[in-house]
């Protein structure tokens, strides 16, 4: 049964934070990485042991593979990802004029599949979509998160902030209740991080696989006994816009490891 305790997987870390009523001060901004045990940090830091690297490698293969009725690979249009995709994940979600709303990285990959490759969309949380997203995001590893400044994003980002601050679920808690006001404290056995989307897609030990940011956000919603937004729902992209703004300046870690 999904419940709040799913958020509170056993963890030995006991870092103590400071309560901040109105968001997080710049000097206090910390990645989820900083709240992990040294063992889990070491797992992420070493590419040979980081299980997320398997998805990055699979993504590298898919990048080269011709697909769809157009029989073209991602590389056919974008060439060498280490050059053309560098920095892209650091500024996503971006505004997509055709739809009149923001799109996240996985959404962009799927729209390239549909429009350029004329292939079927990859399912949310499928290995192929996670692998391609991880491969593209990995090209920005170490770069500071620098959200796009396109003014057309503003209303969506505002909606994301509103969602972040709204109490939901039977437990009547908001994202901010935990991640702005109580980060660094423990919920059961787990330290509450600041909710920075620095490492996605990432390998979560509890999942024993790689998952997207949307999967993480849905987990937190289920934890407070709320009906989670569906994968691909516009609200999840709006929330991501707010999260990237909060995380501005932190470094991209993809593929991260989390407990």
């Amino acid at each position: 049964m999904h419940a709040l305790w799913r958020l509170a997987a056993v963890s030995a870390a006991t870092i103590c934070g400071i309560v901040s009523a109105a968001g997080i001060e710049d000097g206090e901004k910390r990645s989820g990485f900083d709240f992990m045990t040294p063992e889990t940090q070491a797992l992420q830091a070493d590419d040979m042991s980081n299980p997320g690297m398997l998805w990055v490698l699979q993504g590298e293969q898919l990048w080269q593979q011709a697909e769809g009725r157009a029989d073209v690979a991602c590389a056919g249009c974008h060439d060498n990802a280490s050059r053309t995709m560098r920095g892209v994940a650091a500024r996503y979600p971006a505004f997509e004029a055709a739809r009149g709303r923001p799109i996240d990285l996985a959404g962009r990959i799927n729209s390239c599949r549909a429009e350029r490759q004329q292939a079927e969309a990859l399912a949310p949380e499928s290995d192929a979509l996670l692998a391609l997203t991880a491969y593209v995001a990995h090209q920005s590893r170490g770069m500071p998160i620098t959200p796009a400044t396109d003014p057309r994003l503003a209303p969506f980002r505002d909606n994301g902030r509103r969602l972040f601050q709204s109490r939901i679920g039977q437990l009547d808690l908001s994202c901010a209740s935990c991640h702005d006001d109580n980060w660094g404290k423990r919920l059961g056995g787990s330290v509450i991080p600041q909710a920075h989307p620095t490492g996605y897609p990432l390998y979560r030990l509890e999942w024993q696989t790689v998952g997207s940011l949307q999967r993480r956000l849905r987990n937190c919603m289920v934890g407070v006994r709320a009906e989670p937004f569906a994968f691909g729902a516009p609200e999840l992209v709006d929330l991501e816009l707010h999260l990237t703004e909060r995380a501005r300046g932190l470094l991209v870690e993809t593929p991260a490891v989390r407990p």
Partner: peptide, 23 residues
């Protein structure tokens, strides 16, 4: 942040999951 344990929190916009609604 302490939940109200004896209250039904089904108001519009709360998105209470089906399994927990009305209780």
């Amino acid at each position: 942040i302490m939940p109200s344990y004896y209250r039904v929190a089904d108001e519009q916009g709360r998105r209470v999951a089906t399994a927990w609604r009305s209780k």
